[in-house]
Simulated assay, not measured.
Amino acid sequence: MVELSTIARPYAEAAFEVAKTSNIAQWNDWLQSWSAVASNDNIHLLASNPKLSDQQVLDLFVELTKTPADAPARNFLAALVENGRLLALPEIARQFVELKNAHEGAADAVIASAFPLADSDVQNIRGALEKKFGSKLNITVQVDESLIGGVCVTVGDQILDSSVRGKLNAMKAALTA
Rank of each mutant, 00 (worst) to 15 (best):
V37K: 01
N23L: 06
D70T: 03
D29L: 02
V18A: 13
V37A: 08
A12M: 08
A38N: 02
Q26D: 14
Q26I: 09
D29F: 05
P10E: 04
S48P: 06
A12S: 12
A69T: 09
A19S: 01
I43T: 06
S22H: 06
W34I: 08
A15Y: 02
S48Q: 13
N23P: 00
D59Y: 11
Y11L: 04
D59A: 15
E63S: 13
D59I: 11
T21S: 14
H44P: 01
E13V: 11
L45Y: 05
L64A: 14
D59S: 12
Q32Y: 03
N42R: 12
F61E: 02
A25Y: 03
T67D: 03
P10S: 15
N28H: 04
A12T: 05
E63N: 09
L64P: 00
E13R: 13
D41F: 11
V57D: 09
N49F: 02
R9W: 09
I43C: 05
D29G: 12
F61M: 08
A36L: 14
L31R: 04
V62H: 10
Q56G: 01
P10Y: 11
T21K: 11
N23Y: 06
F16K: 00
L45M: 11
D54W: 01
L58R: 08
S33G: 13
K51N: 12
A15I: 02
N49D: 14
S22Q: 08
W30F: 15
L64H: 04
W34C: 09
K66G: 07
A15H: 05
P10G: 14
A36H: 08
K51S: 14
E63F: 11
D29A: 14
A15Q: 02
S22D: 06
A12F: 07
A71I: 10
N40A: 12
A19L: 08
N28W: 08
L31Y: 02
S39R: 13
H44C: 07
W27A: 13
S39N: 09
I43P: 08
A71L: 00
L45F: 02
D29H: 04
T67Y: 00
V57F: 04
H44G: 13
P68D: 15
S48K: 14
D59M: 10
A38K: 01
L64R: 07
P68L: 11
E13H: 05
N23E: 13
T67Q: 03
L64G: 07
S35N: 06
A69P: 03
I24H: 01
A15T: 10
S22L: 02
Q55R: 14
W27P: 04
A15M: 01
V37N: 08
E13I: 04
Q56I: 00
L64Q: 07
L58C: 00
P10Q: 12
K66L: 08
D70R: 05
A14L: 10
Q55Y: 03
K51W: 00
A38P: 06
A36W: 03
A69H: 10
S53T: 15
